[in-house]
């Protein structure tokens, strides 16, 4: 089941890498995705839990290079890193002033999910296992991914808000369950700018 849940969660990566284009139909999204070679952005993640009065706020960086290199890094409050290179996922946590490999039980599932990114990069939004995708042209335009029965124990809904600029996702809202939701907002986004190969290298 981890595989399925992470398929859903990492749909966000898919869409970013897709460089969801700016149009009113799926075909245009696919076309815009084909123009994306690299993406880099900073993000702020706001995690709301019913148990907490104040949300947990994390910040990080995101890098993608076509066809299959990905770096998703949290810089605060807990430094962690997920690297996807040629279909292989590696996870690390900053501990004792160095990166340490993390044996999180979800790693295998994450690898499986990220492995599907190539298909997603070709703009196959509507072929996602476990979700039903709806495109709303807006403004603001957004894609709503409603979890199917099998996915609902893990994620109920993912909403991607599309920006004015072609290929830009402004915000991702993930509702896991009744007591927990996550918002990821991207900023300083750069499309098709050169990214050093070291960015995707194992630390």
């Amino acid at each position: 089941m981890y595989r399925r849940i992470l398929i859903g969660l990492f749909a966000i990566f898919l869409f970013l890498c897709l460089g969801a284009g700016w149009t009113r139909d799926w075909a245009s999204l696919r076309q815009a995705g084909g123009d994306i070679k690299t993406i880099s952005a900073n993000f702020i993640q706001t995690k709301k839990l019913e148990i907490l009065k104040q949300p947990l706020v994390a910040q990080g960086r995101f890098f993608y290079q076509a066809p299959d290199s990905l770096r998703w890094e949290y810089t605060t409050p807990v430094r962690s890193l997920a690297l996807m290179q040629a279909g292989e996922l590696q996870r690390f946590v900053w501990s004792g002033n160095q990166w340490r490999a993390d044996a999180n039980p979800s790693s295998q599932a994450m690898q499986a999910v990220l492995g599907k990114m190539q298909m997603w990069l070709q703009g196959s939004f509507q072929d996602q296992t476990g979700f039903t995708a709806k495109l709303e042209s807006g403004p603001p335009a957004f894609i709503k991914l409603e979890a199917g029965k099998a996915m609902r124990p893990y994620v109920e809904e993912i909403v991607l808000r599309l920006g004015q600029r072609p290929g830009v996702i402004e915000r991702i809202d993930i509702r896991e369950y009744e007591h927990s939701s996550t918002r990821i907002e991207f900023k300083d986004l750069k499309l098709n700018a050169p990214i050093a190969s070291e960015v995707f290298a194992k630390p």
Binding site: I5, L9, Q45, V78, A82, V93, D102, E176, S180
Partner: peptide, 11 residues
């Protein structure tokens, strides 16, 4: 009451 999450915030 206890909540456990991954570093990415997944409960």
């Amino acid at each position: 009451t206890s909540v456990l999450m991954t570093p990415e915030g997944f409960v």
